[in-house]
């Protein structure tokens, strides 16, 4: 695989990153790595519990690892363990897996504008590694820097998730009960806490705030009426629709992507991110009638 590129997302994919750009990317990558530590801890905990569950359900190590490698979707894998244990036929398991993983359609569509310049084959590999965690980490990173950073995606998808998940699965299915239940160490709370923390980083205006609040409310309501999976998908679909109802003129976008305000918002102090008079890159789908970006600010 060739060196992943740091390519500007929009509007000009041919622009050459400046020294300032490179600094912003480096700082955002450091932040990404820190965030990845928490996600990796969560993946290790859940992966280990999955391995234990699979072992208890009669999976061999090869079978458990095949699930973690080929399917690589925690919720679907946990569900499959239960289905196998209860004797559900394979076609039903496959159908339920498709429904359970339907939310990935949203992730894929949301990342598409950012990754459109990545070569097809690499995008095809990226797709297999697209999980809740990879999406949350990478979209936050891209928005911080206002451009695509392919290496950032690999860090999120492979370093923070795929490797820890698979190593932990192997440990769980082979070591069994020799290691205490990770949930006794509070590992189970890392995932929802990480998701809400990463969502905070994406809220840069009233539209995002409305989408987040409505998404959570609709998600819980629908989950209680149907299932958690359906609830999450419903929240992900309805929240943005409600957010768009807020007119652009009152959206109060406080941190346009790639602007100094955005960089400061994401805690990368110590640099002037955008030179005076330089236009920050716009985000995919940026609204032309949004308020103009704030003037570049000096170091804090």
């Amino acid at each position: 695989m060739t060196e992943p590129s740091v390519s500007p997302a929009l509007p000009d994919p041919t622009a050459v990153p400046t020294a300032d750009d490179a600094t912003v990317v480096d700082e955002s990558r450091r932040r990404l790595l820190t965030e990845s530590l928490g996600i990796a801890a969560s993946a290790i905990g859940f992966g280990f519990v999955y391995g234990l569950s699979a072992r208890d359900a009669g999976f061999s190590p090869i079978e458990a690892m095949a699930m973690s490698t080929f399917v690589f979707a925690g919720a679907a894998q946990f569900a499959a363990v239960g289905y196998i244990a209860s004797g559900l036929p394979w076609p039903a398991i496959v159908l339920l897996t498709a429904l359970l993983n339907g939310r990935h359609l949203l992730y894929s569509a949301a990342l598409a504008p950012w990754l459109r310049h990545v070569p097809f084959v690499r995008r095809a590999v990226m797709a297999h590694l697209l999980t809740d965690e990879a999406f949350a980490l990478s979209i936050g990173h891209f928005r911080r820097i206002g451009r695509t950073d392919e290496r950032g995606y690999w860090i999120a998808a492979v370093g923070a998730t795929f490797i820890p998940w698979n190593l932990a699965t192997f440990a769980g299915v082979t070591l069994g009960g020799q290691i205490p239940d990770p949930n006794s160490f509070g590992i189970d709370v890392i995932f929802p806490a990480a998701m809400i923390g990463l969502a905070v980083g994406l809220i840069t205006g009233r539209r995002e705030l409305a989408a987040a609040i409505v998404g959570a409310g609709v998600g819980v309501a629908v989950a209680l009426l149907t299932s958690p999976t359906v609830g999450i998908i419903a929240g992900g679909l309805v929240g943005p629709a409600v957010g768009l109802l807020i007119p652009a003129r009152v959206a109060h976008e406080t941190a346009p992507l790639g602007s100094p305000a955005s960089a400061d918002r994401y805690s990368m102090p110590g640099r002037t991110r955008w030179r005076s008079g330089q236009e920050p890159p716009t985000e995919p789908g940026a609204q032309p009638d949004r308020p103009a970006p704030a003037e570049p600010e000096e170091d804090r």
Binding site: R103, L202, G215, V218, V220, G239, A241
Partner: peptide
Amino acid sequence: ERMPKLALAYLQLVGPAILTAIAAVSVMV
């Protein structure tokens, strides 16, 4: 990449919505 602007604006809001939905459902249901 040729999606209408409205669709792109919608997709920009998917992240906050679905991540909070995941967190809320995980701890409340």
